[in-house]
Computed example of a mutant assay.
Amino acid sequence: MTTVQGKEDQRSLPQTIRDQLRDEILRGVLPPGAQLRQESLAERFGASRIPVREALRQLEAEGLVSYQLNRGAVVMAMSTREICELLDIRAALETYAAKLAVPNMVAADIDVMKRILAAYDASTSPADWAEYNRQFHLALCAPANNARLRKMIEEYCLSTTNRYPHLRMSLDTEKGDVQRDHYEIVDACKRRAVDDVVELIERHILDTKREVMAAARMAGLTDQ
């Protein structure tokens, strides 16, 4: 049994449980359709049902968990078509956010993005790559100073990025390609080249869409 230390601040317990479950979902330890029973999770983490319920609620907001009739919380499965639809929406949201954000950027914003990319470079964990990718895109849109727009981007970013392992993409290749795009975006942000940033983000996301569709074809999936 994995037991969360009793001395840990109660307020961080849902986040601890959420992070562990998220990592297991991303690595495929918990596959799409797997049931997440509150009683079993509470026993596993040495916690009550309250922090478990909150952790599952947060994972539901991230698009990783859904609730089904007579089954409760399950790891959410997404079709290729659904992922591509979300990527289209994400491209529209992020390019709009860039138009608002880039004129407001200061040196500290660029530094935050660079630190995230450095951590991304150093990591060898696909689950960490998904998290650093999420952090980068949220840092990119943060100077837009629009909380509702940021929340929408966060949800779509998570619900697409976290599906890659299940489509059998080449993660090593993906990481290199994604990082090259990220560094180009940062360079354009430094130059305050709004149009360039918008073009790079749109290309970056739509290239991802093409990779998702290609991976689905290679895997013989038919829900395109």
Rank of each mutant, 00 (worst) to 15 (best):
M1K: 01
T2V: 15
T3V: 06
V4N: 02
Q15L: 11
T16P: 00
T16Y: 03
R18E: 07
D19V: 07
D19F: 09
Q20D: 08
E24A: 15
E24N: 09
E24T: 00
V29T: 09
V29H: 05
V29L: 06
L30H: 02
P31H: 09
A34W: 04
Q38I: 08
L41I: 00
A42I: 00
R44S: 01
R44I: 02
V52F: 00
V52R: 00
R53G: 01
E54H: 02
E54I: 00
R57V: 00
R57H: 11
A61N: 14
S66E: 15
Q68N: 08
N70S: 15
V74R: 12
A77R: 14
S79H: 06
S79N: 05
E82P: 13
E82C: 04
E82H: 03
C84I: 08
L87T: 14
D88V: 11
I89A: 12
R90K: 12
A91Y: 05
A92G: 04
Y96Q: 09
A97L: 04
A97V: 07
A98E: 09
L100Q: 09
A101S: 11
V106A: 03
M113F: 03
R115H: 08
R115E: 08
A118C: 04
S123I: 05
P126Q: 01
D128Q: 02
W129Y: 03
A130R: 02
N133P: 00
H137K: 04
L138Q: 09
L138E: 10
A142P: 07
N145P: 00
R148Q: 14
I153R: 13
E155G: 09
Y156G: 02
T160Y: 05
R163C: 08
Y164T: 13
L167K: 08
S170I: 01
S170E: 11
V178N: 12
Q179E: 11
R180N: 14
D181M: 10
E184V: 10
V186Q: 14
V186T: 09
D187E: 15
R192N: 13
V194H: 08
V194F: 10
D196S: 10
V197G: 06
I205D: 07
D207H: 07
D207W: 07
D207Y: 11
T208A: 15
E211K: 13
V212K: 02
M213T: 15
A219V: 04
L221W: 13
L221Q: 13
T222G: 06
T222I: 05
Q224D: 06
